[in-house]
């Protein structure tokens, strides 16, 4: 299966799952022991939420070929839905609120996915902007969503599952990590299934897909729903685990573009791509700011940082599209292969 082999290159001596298992062991054991609170708050928590959002968008855009510019809207739906389910339905476990939030995002995603049945390419991309603007407007406009809070900014509830509280940066990290791990595993199962194959078929040649009997319309809507579900849950993690507040402003068009950039830079149609892309997106501003203030000193204030960030990010996108359209994942695999052959030779 190409998706499988392309995605998890089996190393010569170890079975394919060994790398993943090792990675999980490090993430669950080593990182909580050695990680500083800065690492969790500034890097790992946003990284996990954005990775999940990138994963969701990659299912829609990378696998099913439907470009969306409204991902942040679905994050917002997820975050606000989880907040409201948790607030308004008594004794509903948090995990149920999160799942319901995912379904709410999926439902909204389904509605805004309807144009995909008739529209393609740019027209569809533009129509997904409608989701972005409409959702952001609705959440700002109707204070019911934010429980009539005067500032529109609301505190997220504490994270706990089955009586176990996930407090502090490490607790929230472990919570996010678990959610991301479970959803990533399910997404992986999906993309190697018949449905995943249908996604790619619709992406690569819609007419041929229809003719061989792929239910094209159903497949597209399913891609929208599943993608929105995952992005919605990512929104919950972003608000509940990372920011600890829920506010519409954070889920703006720039966020949507950011998630699209994660997918492009990381690698379209690759599960790992979302994680690679998110890592770069989260880490590079921090590196840039350190580097900038080290080289330029005081001139490099936050305004300059912000602008140079935009320039570097934009340049990266263009460079990746021109030089490495398959993203960091492809780059990584090539480097690994080269190291592999180098080792064998020596």
């Amino acid at each position: 299966m190409s998706v499988l082999t392309a995605d998890l290159p089996v190393s010569r001596s170890l079975p394919g799952w060994a790398g993943t298992a090792a990675l999980l062991a490090v993430a669950y054991v080593a990182v909580p022991i050695f990680g500083t609170s800065y690492l969790f708050e500034a890097i790992l928590l946003p990284f996990l939420a954005l990775s999940l959002a990138g994963l969701g968008l990659n299912i829609l855009t990378g696998y099913a070929g439907q470009v969306s510019l409204g991902s942040a809207a679905f994050m917002a739906v997820g975050a606000f839905a989880a907040f409201n389910f948790n607030l308004r339905v008594e004794s509903l476990p948090l995990i149920a609120s999160i799942a319901l939030a995912g379904f709410a995002a999926a439902a909204i995603g389904l509605v805004f996915g309807l144009p995909s049945l008739r529209l393609k390419g740019f027209y569809l991309a533009v129509s997904t902007l409608a989701a972005q603007f409409f959702v952001q407007w609705a959440l700002t406009k109707f204070s019911w969503f934010s429980n009539d809070s005067a500032s529109g900014v609301i505190d997220a509830p504490p994270l706990s599952i089955a009586g176990v509280a996930f407090e502090g940066p490490v607790g929230r990290y472990l919570f996010s990590l678990t959610v991301v791990t479970v959803l990533t595993f399910l997404a992986y199962r999906l993309v190697i299934s018949q449905t995943g194959r249908n996604f790619i078929a619709v992406r690569d040649n819609e007419t041929a897909a229809r003719i061989i009997g792929v239910p094209v319309l159903k497949t597209k809507l399913l891609a929208f729903a599943i993608s929105s579900f995952i992005i919605g849950v990512a929104g919950v993690l972003w608000a509940f685990a990372y920011l600890r507040t829920v506010e519409p402003a954070g889920f703006n068009l720039d966020r949507s573009f950011q998630i699209l950039f994660i997918v492009i830079i990381g690698g379209l149609a690759s599960i790992r791509g979302a994680f690679f892309g998110a890592a770069l997106i989260v880490v590079f501003p921090l590196v840039l700011s350190r580097l900038g203030s080290f080289l330029l000193g005081d001139i490099f204030d936050s305004g300059v940082l912000d602008m140079s960030q935009r320039i570097v990010l934009g340049t990266l996108i263009i460079l990746f599209l021109i030089l490495e359209p398959d993203g960091l994942v492809a780059l990584w695999d090539r480097v690994r292969k080269r190291i592999g052959t180098g080792l064998r030779r020596s």
Binding site: F122, G303, M307, I311, L313, T315, I317, L321
Partner: peptide, 24 residues
């Protein structure tokens, strides 16, 4: 000869560069 949507994403990146440069 790349798909139109790739070109679109490139111009999206471009808009970041130009906005950043203009304000810088």
């Amino acid at each position: 000869n790349k798909p139109p949507i790739t070109l679109f994403m490139a111009t999206l990146g471009l808009s970041y560069v130009i906005e950043g440069a203009a304000q810088l």
